[in-house]
Amino acid sequence: MSVSKVQTLIFDTFGTLVDWRTSIVDDLSRWGAKNGVVLDWAAFADEWKTAYRPGMDAVNSGKRAWVPVRQIYREKLDEMLPQYGLDNVSENDRHFINEVWYRLNAWPDTVPGLERLAKKYVLSSFSNSDFLGMALMTKHASLPFDAIITAENVRKFKPDPSMYEMAVELMGQGNPERIMLVAAHNYDLAHARKHGMATAFIARPTEYGPEQKTDIRAEQEWDIVVASAEQLAQELGC
């Protein structure tokens, strides 16, 4: 697909632009050191993340009414804490721990790449996050977005078609060829392509740690395949 008509880049954020796993491990390690808690925080983060897809699928299928992803993570956190011997953690600390999902740091190439892209394109998030959470993370990670769109806009999660339809309507004024989705996840790009958008894959082979099994590489011939946001900027002439 030609990318010559693209005016707006919409970005998956968790994993694509921010390194959620390393950020959580580092953040909670500091909390643990302050509070005398020693845990394998990498294992903790990995187990916590397992709630993500099943929780969203329950909403998308209608088995559960809409809840934001922060609620899905909070429910899993409350389930996990006793298993890790932390059942006496206060409500304030539970809230602080859960909000770590919005204190995530960008990959080193993210901000330099986006700053270059912003000189030519409109930039927006395209995330399963809730709206406030994305605003908080955008500020924390210094992401130079012009707009924020999230699952909360349609109360469904990717890959529900309403997410992609919403992006086309809001960011392309009904013209999907004006939009490129940038993501590190092949499933996301596949659904964007079905809705007529251009696609760019950024490889993040350590998003899930050193033993990552999925999304190691591009699984289709996406319009652009790169290893960093800075390389994407170069490919798009920025």
Results as ranks from 00 to 15, higher is better:
Ala233Arg: 01
Thr22Lys: 09
Ser162Phe: 03
Leu39Asp: 14
Leu236Asp: 08
Leu17Thr: 14
Ala51Asn: 04
Phe157His: 09
Gly172Gln: 01
Ser61Gly: 06
Asp46His: 12
Leu104Thr: 10
Lys34His: 11
Val182Asp: 01
Arg103Asp: 04
Ala58Val: 04
Glu211Asn: 14
Ser90Glu: 10
Gly55Asn: 07
Asn60Leu: 11
Asp109Lys: 10
Lys139Gly: 06
Ala183Asn: 00
Val100Thr: 15
Arg70Ser: 13
Leu132Ala: 09
Ala106Asn: 01
Met134Val: 08
Thr150Lys: 05
Asn98Glu: 10
Ser2Ile: 07
Ala33Ile: 05
Val225Gly: 00
Arg74Leu: 14
Ala135Met: 09
Asn92Arg: 14
Asn153Thr: 06
Lys76Phe: 07
Val38Ile: 13
Ser162Glu: 11
Lys49Glu: 11
Asp223Cys: 04
Gln83Ser: 07
Glu177Ala: 12
Gln7Phe: 01
Arg30His: 06
Asp146Arg: 05
Phe201Lys: 02
Ala33Leu: 11
Lys194Leu: 14
Trp222Thr: 04
Ser4Asp: 15
Ala183Pro: 00
Lys213Glu: 14
Asp87Ser: 15
Arg193Ile: 07
Val182Gln: 01
Glu219Val: 04
Leu143Thr: 02
Gly133Asn: 09
His185Gln: 12
Leu114Ala: 01
Ser142Trp: 04
Ala198Thr: 11
Pro144Cys: 08
Glu99Lys: 15
Lys139Gln: 14
Ser127Phe: 03
Leu189Tyr: 08
Ala45Pro: 01
Met137Asp: 02
Asp26Met: 07
Pro161Trp: 08
Gln234Trp: 09
Leu117Trp: 03
Ser129Phe: 12
Pro205Thr: 11
Gly15Asp: 04
Glu177Met: 05
Pro159Ser: 09
Leu143Ser: 03
Val69Asp: 05
Ser61Pro: 02
Glu165Pro: 01
Gly133Met: 03
Met56Glu: 13
Glu99Ser: 13
Gln173Val: 03
Gly237Leu: 08
Gln234Met: 05
Trp101Met: 15
Val122Glu: 08
Gln7Pro: 00
Gly15Leu: 05
Ile149Cys: 04
Ala183Gly: 03
Thr138Ile: 02
Met171Arg: 14
Ala33Asp: 14
Pro144Ser: 07
Ser29Tyr: 03
Pro68Gln: 05
Ala42Val: 07
Leu77Asn: 08
Val225Tyr: 04
Pro82Phe: 07
Ser90Ile: 11
Ala203Lys: 13
Arg21Trp: 02
Leu181Pro: 00
Glu211Gln: 12
Gly196Ile: 10
Gly209Pro: 02
Leu132Phe: 07
Phe201Glu: 00
Val225Cys: 09
Ala118Asn: 06
Arg53Tyr: 05
Glu165Lys: 12
Ser129Ile: 07
Lys194Met: 11
Phe96Asp: 15
Phe14Lys: 00
Lys63Trp: 01
Ile10Arg: 02
Val122Asn: 08
Gln83Pro: 00
Leu77Met: 15
Thr110Ser: 14
Pro161Leu: 10
Thr138Phe: 03
Asn60Asp: 13
Pro159Trp: 09
Pro82Leu: 06
Gln7Met: 07
Tyr84Ile: 12
Thr16Arg: 11
Leu9Cys: 08
Ala184Gly: 12
Leu81Asn: 09
Thr13Arg: 02
Thr138Asn: 06
Arg116Lys: 15
Phe131Met: 06
Leu123Phe: 06
Val89Tyr: 04
Gly209His: 05
Asn186Cys: 10
Glu47Leu: 13
Gln220Pro: 01
Asp130Leu: 01
Cys238Trp: 00
Leu81Glu: 10
Gln234Arg: 13
